[in-house]
Amino acid sequence: MNRIQQALQQDKKLLSIYFTAGFPKLDDTVTVIQELENSGADMIEIGLPFSDPLADGPTIQESSTDALKNGITTARLFDQLEGIRDTVSIPLIMMGYFNPMMQYGMEDFCKRCSELGIDGLIIPDLPLREFELEYKAIFEKYGLDMVFLITPQTSEARIREIDAASNSFIYMVSTASTTGAQSGFGSETTAYFDRIANMNLKSECIVGFGISSEETFTAATHKAKGAIIGSAFIKMLREKGTAGIGAFMKGIRPD
């Protein structure tokens, strides 16, 4: 059983944090990961910056632009992550757009991830069909999970298809939007959470997009297994740097 599966079997709601590698400073990557584990994160998504992040709102876009200006590259990120498993034991997932991975070479990319102890990948713009035809075998060879997304507009048939294809959790996008904090979830979103919960999928669902506070975390995880915070965390990092991580995490999960 891999680290993601182990985490999903814990009897608690999982708090997962997304951050952009190489931000706010180039060499903050490892510090952010260690601080997150120390302050109670259950899972981490390491964002591989891209020049044209289509699915992201302004906060993550700007952090990617800054990280690229700082000089982050795929190869440099892998160098930073060398030895990460000596100090960090929670699941680590690499999240990024497909083009930089494609240029690195998907097999080399997966091999390197596996060597470093990365547990899975989220690639928002790699469609299910292309994944299954071209890359699934590589993921299996290197023991990596592939995490698929669903949204409030995803049809039931497609959710079933994705659930069947998934060997990990499903990333449940909370609302029809790009990434970014929202003040709360409306009744439509709550109805969507209920609808998915009632589908009895084999995969656990973790909610992302629009989660920024204890309230939104609690609301998102009422039915789902966990929730992911991205933009709100990036915003905090921009203001306070890595020193602010402990207080931020306490704010989300006080106990």
């Binding site: 289509l54 699915a55 669903i150 949204t151 049809s155 996008v173």
Partner: peptide
Amino acid sequence: AFIPEMLYP
């Protein structure tokens, strides 16, 4: 069509 799931529908 290398699009995020949000655009799929």
